[in-house]
């Protein structure tokens, strides 16, 4: 009996072994290196590294207001993505889960933005949003709302919101897809039984769909936080983090420290602090929603 139990536990470990081995070699080893480097001053080239203790961390925390502003910007975009983007994605997934017309078409179309290259997305949106020749301002003028026309990407008042909206547009397809997969897991019988009992659509939604979807909502929430906090390619292509620091985000700062200023140690310290913040936020969300689902 004891032998069998031991064998069973051993077998359990075998399941995670391949993942752990790959992870240990290709993640943990570089991670330890980054961790060591964060207490050094290093330009990324010379064989010489100078140990400076926790000075890098101290500088990130107390002497780098732009870093924290970029964090706030990313946080702002994340809040918009968590609420607006995911609400839209959830609604669309619900719609496409029902027996609506052309639903197969919609399912394909909604996944176009994630497939499109950032280059195309950047070019198209710049064309739409251009202050002088852009489509959006053209339409606004046509329907008599010329006073709303703006230099969407270079006006500090609108730049961050514009970037956030484009980011949400590019990313909602993922939420849509995962929600859709999640909705497949809800047995149809549950709805049928409720309907026989005379429950309306809203009741079903509130008492069947939502509770059963909580784990998936948490999952999408965490993936949204990660994806949005770490976003930078599209922002780089649209505004370069400008005007001034209005659309600056943490990953762009990390790259600026590494490539622009050749401060590898500092970039590593920034990465670690960023990671700790992300873990904290995600953990809070995981725990918080985990309790709710119970």
């Amino acid at each position: 009996m004891n032998y069998l139990k031991l064998k069973s536990t051993f077998e359990n470990y075998l399941f995670i072994l391949p993942a752990v081995v790959i992870f240990a070699i290709f993640y943990i080893i570089p991670f330890i290196w980054v961790f060591q480097l964060s207490v050094f001053e290093w330009d990324g080239i010379s064989p010489l590294k100078t140990a400076i203790g926790l000075a890098n961390f101290k500088e990130v925390i107390t002497g780098d207001p732009i870093w924290w502003q970029s964090m706030l910007n990313a946080g702002y975009i994340t809040i918009i993505a968590l609420t607006f983007q995911n609400a839209v994605a959830f609604f669309l997934a619900l719609a496409c889960d029902r027996e609506i017309r052309f639903k197969n078409w919609f399912r394909v179309i909604f996944f176009i933005p994630p497939v499109l290259s950032e280059v195309v997305v950047g070019l198209v949106w710049q064309w739409i949003l251009d202050g002088n020749f852009g489509l959006l301002n053209g339409w606004l003028t046509k329907i008599g709302l010329a006073h709303l026309a703006k230099y969407w990407l270079s006006d500090p008042a609108t730049a961050l919101n514009t970037v956030a909206i484009i980011h949400c547009w590019k990313g909602f397809g993922w939420g849509f897809l995962i929600f859709l997969a999640g909705l497949q897991g809800i047995p149809r019988e549950l709805y049928e039984a409720a309907r026989v009992d005379g429950a309306n659509a809203f009741y079903c939604f509130k008492n069947i769909t939502i509770p059963l979807m909580i784990p998936v909502i948490v999952l999408v929430g965490i993936l949204t936080i990660l994806g949005t906090m770490q976003a930078f390619v599209l922002i780089m292509a649209m505004t370069g983090g400008g005007p001034a620091y209005h659309t600056q985000v943490p990953v762009l700062r990390i790259y600026a420290s590494m490539q622009g200023a050749s401060r590898f140690g500092y970039a590593c310290a920034q990465s670690l602090i960023f990671g700790v913040i992300l873990i904290t936020i995600s953990f809070i969300q995981y725990r918080f929603s985990g309790k709710q689902s119970r």
């Binding site: 536990t9 980054v34 770490q230 990953v251 990671g275 700790v276 873990i279």
Partner: peptide, 28 residues
């Protein structure tokens, strides 16, 4: 399954998802 260290290992994997290490490419 149940096995010792399960949650710890799982949380380490999750943590890895969170920490972007752009600088790690040199180590890699």
């Amino acid at each position: 399954f149940k096995f010792p260290g399960k949650n710890l290992i799982f949380y380490i994997f999750m943590g890895a998802m969170m920490i972007p290490i752009p600088g790690s490419f040199v180590a890699l």
